[in-house]
Design a protein around this nucleic acid. Structure first.
Lengths: 206, 206
DNA sequence: TTCTGTGAATAGGTTCACAGCT
DNA sequence: AGCTGTGAACCTATTCACAGAA
């Protein structure tokens, strides 16, 4: 497939959220202008984003809400569900396990790991915290595509190496470090401090 | 000041983190190649990013670690500290209050608000959860530049309207909605579900 | 010689504008 | 008439490549 910009993928995700709301409200069709309003973008951008994947609308009419929703789910790979393991049983990890947005979209946290012996064995939202050393043997039994890394910065690369070794193909990283992975593994980093700093930058440079 | 790309600002934040580590380790100078390696970018990109703000290096030598760190802190507006209020005393909110990365960089959470009467009055990491209705009067007494919004999607826009009314100029939004604000207010949205979906997209389109 | 600083070239993403269905 | 689909134009960001200072 032709290369798709990450910004396009993120917008598709926003469109989908709005389509799902419209579906519930029983709207049959929707225009690129409607989607744009809700996605914080322009009608042309919406149409261009969709055009990378095909022609889903009807000229003069707009898009069928359920059809477009299904199509975007398909594009985003949301027709299947995903097993997700979480490494790092700290506060942020704990918040993420419970985050309803994940489960709603088919991302199921199936295991939580931590290095701290004191945490291992405790229950978290119905899951028993396991020792990080089990990752390799566990994932052999229960192949898993996605891992969320919420460890301290120092520990992250080593954890990621083990995850990659164990066959994980996609990593959502909350540790504030640049991770090295082989080319067939995708990493998406979320850096909370950096997000705040874009705000302080904006405040300082008005 | 000339318009700076957000990607540039985010990279500056990464460079700074690495510079701070190097400072501790007592490195005197650093090259754009070193910074690039750690920031996951190229030496040319590092130099270009910095060049928007001035010429801080010595040709043939590199950059003075403490000088460059100070300069980036200045650029990012980190020479002062910021009061931050948090709206939404849920799990993610709780995790964020404690996140050490915020405090380290001078972002101090000074108040937590929630709409839920059951939560109001309880202690969270040394702070008493207040009623959202107090926002306006509280911020009149304690002017605050930054707010973190961690409410459900439905409540976010109303909360943001109140925050803006109360003089907040920058908002970090974790609610999965597009927020409308006046042009002098900056909003940065973090959408966890969308991040995961960029991963499932990548997995589905290999 | 080494490594920065920066204009110029290239690549990437967004917006325009209009042809083409319905 | 209305709204999509899309090449072309435009704008923004990254990379190149080299002159210039230490």
């Amino acid at each position: 497939m032709r290369k798709i910009a990450e910004s396009t993928v993120r917008r598709l995700s926003l469109y989908l959220r709005y389509l799902e709301q419209s579906e519930v409200q029983g709207h049959g069709t929707i225009s690129s202008a409607d989607l744009a309003r809700r996605g914080g973008t322009t009608p042309a951008q919406v149409r261009k984003d969709l055009s990378f994947f095909g022609s889903f609308g009807k000229r003069g009419l707009g898009y069928s809400v359920p059809e477009l929703a299904a199509k975007i789910r398909d594009i985003l790979g949301l027709k299947r569900s995903y097993r997700v393991v979480l490494v790092g049983a700290g506060r942020i990890g704990g918040a993420l396990v419970q985050y309803p947005g994940f489960r709603q979209r088919g991302f199921h946290v199936t295991a939580i790991y931590d290095k701290d012996r004191k945490k291992v064995g405790s229950r978290w939202n119905g899951l028993v915290v396991r020792d990080v050393q089990q990752i390799a043997s566990d994932l052999k039994k229960e192949p898993t595509d996605i891992a969320i890394v919420v460890t301290p910065a120092e520990a992250a690369q080593q954890v990621v190496d083990e995850l990659v070794q164990a066959g994980v193909k996609a990593i959502l990283n909350f540790a504030p470090v640049q991770l090295a992975v082989p080319p067939d593994v995708v990493v998406k980093s979320v850096n909370m401090a950096a997000e705040l700093e874009t705000l302080s930058f904006a405040l300082a440079n008005r």
